[in-house]
């Protein structure tokens, strides 16, 4: 009798254990599925490839100091200002072509961008912008003003830039610079052109 009881108990425990593992596994796979569905970003391929192009100046940090250094890129001269602004952000995310350093985590995705009538550009980034961010005040200042200066420098219609993350307003990237209000450009962070 006792032996039977014991084997019954053991099989019960083992089966419960297996059940738990199965549940956990299924939950995980479910999560992964949801994640895949979520990805619906705007990639450069969505941009209309016009014949005409224009030059833009975008900004990256350098090992030299804490200033921003310009690089030039060619973008499609789309009739829509929003599409042009998006291309500038794509180029920023792609990173520098010279010895400069990146200004945003390369895994960052641009989710959406729109510009209000009074000249505020709202840019919605994916969460990688803060999750993959090195943290620290300097890195935050560099990332923010690389975005803000790159947009305002090339498009006089854009006066200010508001950064959103995953569609929402976020307080800061990693505890430093206030993201809840739109940024005006700070061109004094741009290294003087004499060096070029």
């Amino acid at each position: 009798m006792k032996k039977k009881d014991l084997t019954l108990l053991i099989t019960l425990i083992v089966s419960i254990f297996i059940l738990i593992i199965l549940v956990i596994l299924s939950l995980k796979t479910e999560r992964i599925k949801v994640k895949k569905e979520e990805i619906n970003y705007f990639y450069p391929s969505t941009i209309e490839q016009t014949k005409e192009k224009r030059k833009v100046t975008i900004f990256f940090p350098s090992e030299e100091d804490s200033l921003l250094y310009p690089e030039t890129r060619e973008i499609y001269l789309t009739p829509s200002l929003i599409e042009q602004a998006k291309q500038v952000i794509f180029e920023l995310i792609k990173g520098p072509e010279s010895e400069h350093l990146p200004s945003l985590p390369p895994t960052t995705k641009l989710r959406e961008l729109f510009i209000t009538n009074d000249g505020i550009a709202y840019i919605d980034f994916s969460k990688e912008i803060y999750q993959q961010h090195p943290g620290g005040s300097e890195a935050e200042i560099i990332s923010i003003y690389a975005i803000v200066n790159s947009l305002t420098y090339n498009f006089p219609q854009i006066k200010k830039v508001q950064i959103l993350i995953e569609g929402l307003e976020k307080e800061t990237f990693n505890g430093h610079i206030d993201l809840t209000k739109p940024f005006s450009p700070r061109f004094n962070l741009i290294a003087s052109n004499k060096k070029y």
Binding site: P61, L101, A139, H176
Partner: peptide, 17 residues
Amino acid sequence: IHANASYRKLARGSETY
């Protein structure tokens, strides 16, 4: 009180904001 971080590997020094 904070400690700074940057994209720059050689960034150094203290600063007060």
